[in-house]
Simulated assay, not measured.
Amino acid sequence: MSSSSDKDLWVSWDDYNNAVVGLAHLIHESGWKFDQVLCLARGGLRPGDIFSRIFDVPLAILSTSSYREEVGTVQGDLDIAKHVTVTKGTLSGKVLLLDDLVDSGVTLQKVQSHVKENFPGVTEVRSAVLWYKSCSAVKPDYFMHYLSHNPWIHQPFEAYDSLRPHQLAAWLRKGDAA
Rank of each mutant, 00 (worst) to 15 (best):
G93T: 05
G44W: 07
M1W: 05
A169F: 11
T73S: 14
Y67L: 06
V102T: 15
M1L: 08
E124K: 14
V20Q: 00
E70H: 11
R126T: 08
R46P: 01
V138H: 11
Y16Q: 04
Y142S: 06
P151W: 06
L91D: 07
S65G: 15
A60T: 09
Q109A: 10
D100S: 12
G22K: 02
T107D: 05
G22D: 05
I80N: 09
P151T: 03
D100G: 10
D141W: 01
S136R: 07
A41H: 09
L59P: 08
H145I: 02
G31V: 08
H25Q: 13
P58E: 09
A60R: 09
A24E: 02
Y160K: 01
S52T: 01
K7V: 06
R42I: 10
W152E: 12
G121M: 03
H114R: 12
K133R: 11
D14N: 15
V86A: 07
F157S: 04
V125G: 07
Y16T: 08
L23Q: 00
D49K: 05
L26H: 11
Y16G: 06
H154D: 08
R126S: 01
A41R: 04
V115W: 08
V74G: 03
K139Y: 01
Q112M: 13
T123F: 00
A24H: 03
T90D: 13
G48R: 02
W32C: 03
Q112G: 05
L101E: 07
Q75H: 01
S113N: 14
Y146N: 05
D56K: 14
K116P: 06
L147P: 04
S2V: 08
K7N: 14
I27S: 00
F34G: 05
D141M: 03
K7A: 14
T73N: 12
G105S: 12
N18A: 13
V129L: 02
T123S: 14
F55E: 03
F55R: 02
D79Y: 15
N17V: 07
S127Y: 02
S136A: 15
R53K: 12
A81W: 10
S66P: 01
E124P: 03
K133V: 03
Q167D: 15
H25M: 06
D49N: 10
R173Y: 11
L91M: 07
H149C: 04
V111S: 06
D35T: 01
D161S: 12
L98F: 07
V115H: 07
L59K: 04
